[in-house]
Design a binder for these strands. Sequence first.
DNA 1: AATTCATTCAACCGCACGTCG
DNA 2: TCGACGTGCGGTTGAATGAAT
Length: 335
Amino acid sequence: MGHHQCCSKQKVKRGLWSPEEDEKLIRFITTHGHGSWSSVPKLAGLQRCGKSCRLRWINYLRPDLKRGSFTAQEERTIIDIHRMLGNRWAQIAKHLPGRTDNEVKNFWNSCIKKKLIAQGLDPNTHNLLSTKYKHKINSGLDSTQQRSTTSTPVFTVSSKLQEDYYSMDVKTSFLPFSSVPLISDHSNSSRPQPVHDQSSTSPSLSGYHRNPNMHMQAPSLECASHSSVGGNLPISSSSHNISEFGIILDDNAWGPEFAPIIQAAGQGEMPSQPLRVLDDEVEKVDDFRGSGQHMDASFESSDFELDLMESALMTCGMYYNAWDSWTLQGKNNGA
DNA sequence: AATTCATTCAACCGCACGTCG
DNA sequence: TCGACGTGCGGTTGAATGAAT
C-alpha cells in the first residue's frame, strides 16, 4: 500500500493521535499558523505527515469546532442541502457553523441515512424507495411511529397514496419548498423575509445561477395573515414570491383539500388536475445528478418555506418544483 | 463474566484540481 | 505545455465502544 508523497520521505506515525501530539500541533499552529501543511510536522516536531496534521487540526483541534450531538435544525439543514447537492459534504458543512465535512458525513451515514430509509425514502435521491427496499421500511417502526419519533419533518405521502406507496415508479426529483429557489435574482434586495423566528439558522447558499433561457413566469403570492395549510401549521403574515413550483400527485388523490397549498404557493386558481413535469426534463435532471458535475447553487431558505414544506407534505405528501432550469445550467457550466 | 455483533467516528487513502516554475 | 507539488474532497477502513446473547 503506497503512502502519500508527503509521507514517503520520512518515517511517519499513523493511527490515533496522542494527547502529546495534539499539544504539539496546537501549540505550533496557534503561534505560527499552519502555513504550508507539508512543513508543519517538521517544524512542530511531529512524526506525522502534513496531511495527517491538517486533518487532525481541521476535524478535531480547531478551536471553533462545535462538539456534541447535531440539533434537529442541523439535521434538517443537512437533509435539505443534501437533497440538492448530494454527497458534497464540504459544501453542506459550510452551512453548519462549527461542523466539519467529516462530521456531517459520519452523521449522515450513521444516522440520517437510516432514518430516511426507515421512512421509505432513498437517501441518495430523496425519492420514494422502490419495492426492493420494502422489507427495510417494514422492518422498523410502523408508519405512525416513524412520523412521531423523528425530529425531522417526515416526507411521506398522503393516505390516499399509501396503497401505491411501494409500487410507484418514481423517477421525478422531489424537493421541499425550503429548497425552492424563490427569487430568480439572488441579489434582489426586495425579497421579503419571514416575520417569525428570524434568529434561527437556515440554509443559505451563494453563487447560484439560474438558466435564463428556461425561466418560467413566477407568480407572486400574498399570503393571508396566519393562514393555515393542512389545518395545523401557520404561515407567517408576509408576502412572498414563489416561482417554478408544482405538485405531482396521483390523479386519484387530487382533491379540493389541496387548494390552500396551491393558493399559498402562488399558483392562484386550483388547477383541474395535478401539475406535472415532462418526463424528458426529469431525465435531464437525473442525468445531471448522475454526472457528478458540480453546480453553483445559491438561494435562501426561510422558516416560512420550511413551514410551507411541512404543511404541503403533511397535507398532500409529494410535491415537485422545477429545479430543472438551474441544474441544467450547472450541467452546462460543468461541461 | 465472556463472547459476539453492531455502531460510531477518527483517520487514512486515492483522486482531482490549482498553482508554480 | 508539462510535471511536481500542495491542498481539499469524498469514500472507506478499522479501532473503540456499547448492546445483545
